[in-house]
């Protein structure tokens, strides 16, 4: 049991939590009766997907934020040699560093998920506007009551 936790759960804990959060969101979107609760579930689902993508970009415990730190990276040999001969002088702008990619988190999934967050909030805003229109029309936020009212209206005028 302890070996199972150490081998399978601890190194992949982000992914376990991502699956649990995604299932919580899916359950709320399907099984909850209140429309606002459904939308909160949808937002939890979206953040779970974003959690998966950001977890992919992490490279172990040593990965830092993806900004190159010039004090910890080694300067490349040719530029150092050129500085010694005084060809470029101290004007700056021409320095090159040998960047070790394992020291930094992968920034590509971060940038993709930046768009996903903004799209998620836009979706939530439109959905909440639709919920307010439904409340004006039916006077309730419960899904079963709205369905019952629609059914009653249909049976009252079957020719529509």
């Amino acid at each position: 049991m302890l070996e199972f936790i150490q081998d399978n759960i601890q190194p992949y804990f982000n992914y376990w939590v991502y699956v649990i959060l995604m299932m919580i969101g899916l359950w709320a979107t399907i099984a909850k009766n209140n429309l606002i609760k459904k939308l909160i579930g949808m937002s939890i689902f979206q953040t779970a997907i974003i959690l998966f993508y950001v977890s992919v970009g992490v490279k172990g415990e040593g990965s830092k934020i993806p900004i190159v730190n010039p004090y910890t990276e080694a300067k490349s040999a040719e530029v150092v040699g050129a500085d010694q001969h005084g060809e470029h002088g101290a004007k700056g702008g021409g320095e090159k560093y040998i960047v070790e990619p394992d020291n930094y988190a992968n920034p590509l999934p971060h940038v993709l998920m930046l768009t996903a967050i903004v799209v998620g909030v836009a979706t939530l805003g439109v959905a909440l506007a639709v919920v307010q229109m439904l409340f004006k029309e039916f006077g309730t936020l419960e899904e079963d009551e709205i369905l019952a009212q629609i059914k009653n209206a249909d049976s009252a005028s079957p020719d529509v």
């Binding site: 950001v54 990965s63 988190a105 967050i117 909030v121």
Partner: peptide, 22 residues
């Protein structure tokens, strides 16, 4: 987790705007 750009977008947009909308 090292995703600072995602973090401050989430702080402004997720924790701020969505809570206000709700």
């Amino acid at each position: 987790m090292g995703a600072v750009d995602v973090a401050f977008t989430e702080a402004a947009v997720g924790a701020g705007v969505s809570a206000v909308f709700l």
